[in-house]
Write a protein that binds this DNA or RNA. Structure first.
Lengths: 238, 238
DNA sequence: AAAGTATGAGTAACTTGTACAACAAATTAT
DNA sequence: ATAATTTGTTGTACAAGTTACTCATACTTT
């Protein structure tokens, strides 16, 4: 790792000469939720040209793997995570988007639960950033990230995907904080409660919050874990 | 054209040997509106394996063109059309989706106005099919097409894209027929009228239908042609 | 002339979304 | 212990949007 392993564009080009007629990659926007903020996992760029910039986790697609399998592999390799929520967002392919050559990239976003699955970060250079306090991003990754945030914002009103970002059991307050972080707005407590119960996504966990410095709230869990998987499988395709 | 020009997979593979580590293509789902039905433009497959099947219009992406420019080029080459509405939908990349090798394809849909722009179909083997009466499709093109129809259905309630499918001036009845064809449902005349006027998309053309076998209706046109372009430019990216 | 079909306009019932009040339960400060 | 504060919980009033529905008029066909 570190600077010893940093490559020049020329090195990368020669290592991938055949690929670089048109190389094909996958990039992952990995969302997590800490301290009432929506965060993204970023990697310190290993290109000299982008020494102080950060980038999304990505890799070239292998010849023997399905496109939709590539982001799972990348997440597994980089974070040790299995069975994460992934959805394809869009494909970016401007000629000059990568300084090393022609790279078309398909972008996925992922929602992971940071508290329950402790990440085995294989890389020292991986770090979480709140989406409101981003560092300088390499390539067109800023534009990509904004596209993913917008997609996520559109999604959470219609489908029960946010639960992938929370621990098994959570309070309504935590859930509302999450919605507020994603949508970047304040919501009315009472209306939020009403809406969520109408959605019929929640089941009472018959437990209360512990060790909180205020009146403990009831804990809930996602109603049907099985249904989540069905829905996510469909939405990844779509 | 015809059978003389049909290629075997082996021929295609050898012609594109370098590309076929992973080849990268674009496919276009081209929607038109005839006789109160939503139609798609399909091409008789030139692969022997798919002799009696039809496929979407597609081509490999050139090394020197932006990804989002490729579908414009393809439409121009195949139909002579300029300035069409295009939106990226999704990217398909299963290993086995193309029998000739590994091909990842980004799919766009296009909305074109069949009446005003007469197509110069370069190919005898191009033909329109109602989406309700599709022939056998090659590759995974049936799945791709369904994905595009769903995307279009979601879109027309929120943004004024349907006008790309109609002539400059049209009656409310024609517009409603179009919505009904896309959504595959019947709509209430009065509520449709109310909703459309609320959207504020229509301007009175101060003309009436001509030569119709019933009471002629008023003609309307899209309120702001300039706005259409702004919106479509955004949506293609998104 | 009569029948059929399409345009065009308005209203009531219902559903959904938003703004806001009041109280109870637990914690913290005095 | 008491008061003040924070959070959880339940409900109401109003606005906005959606859905269902009836009638009169204009034109064409028979």
């Amino acid at each position: 790792m570190g600077t010893a392993n940093q490559k020049t564009i020329q090195q990368i080009q020669s290592e991938n000469r055949e690929f670089f007629r048109i190389a094909f990659s996958v990039d992952c926007v990995i969302f997590g939720f800490h301290k009432n903020e929506l965060n993204v996992l970023l990697l310190k760029s290993d290109l000299e040209e982008f020494k102080d910039k950060w980038s999304l986790l990505g890799d070239l697609v292998r010849t023997d793997e399905n496109l939709d399998d590539a982001p799972y592999r990348i997440l597994k390799e980089r974070t040790g995570l299995n069975d994460v929520f992934l959805e394809q967002v869009s494909t970016f392919g401007n000629i000059d988007r990568h300084p090393a050559g022609r790279v078309i990239t398909t972008v996925y976003y992922s929602l992971i639960n940071v508290k329950d699955h402790l990440l085995r970060l294989q890389h020292q250079e991986l770090s979480w950033f709140p989406v409101t306090k981003l560092p300088q991003l390499a390539f067109d990754h800023y534009e990509i990230l904004q596209t993913c945030i917008k997609k996520l914002q559109d999604k959470i009103d219609k489908e029960p995907v946010v639960f992938n970002l929370l621990p098994e059991k959570f309070s309504l307050r935590e859930l509302q904080n999450l919605y507020e972080a994603i949508l970047d707005t304040k919501l009315d407590r009472r209306n939020f409660r009403k809406k969520l119960f109408l959605m019929d996504w929640l089941a009472d966990a018959n437990e209360m919050e512990q060790d909180v410095p205020h009146r403990p709230g009831k804990l809930y869990q996602y109603r049907n874990k099985a249904l989540v998987n069905i829905i996510t499988a469909q939405t990844v395709v779509q």
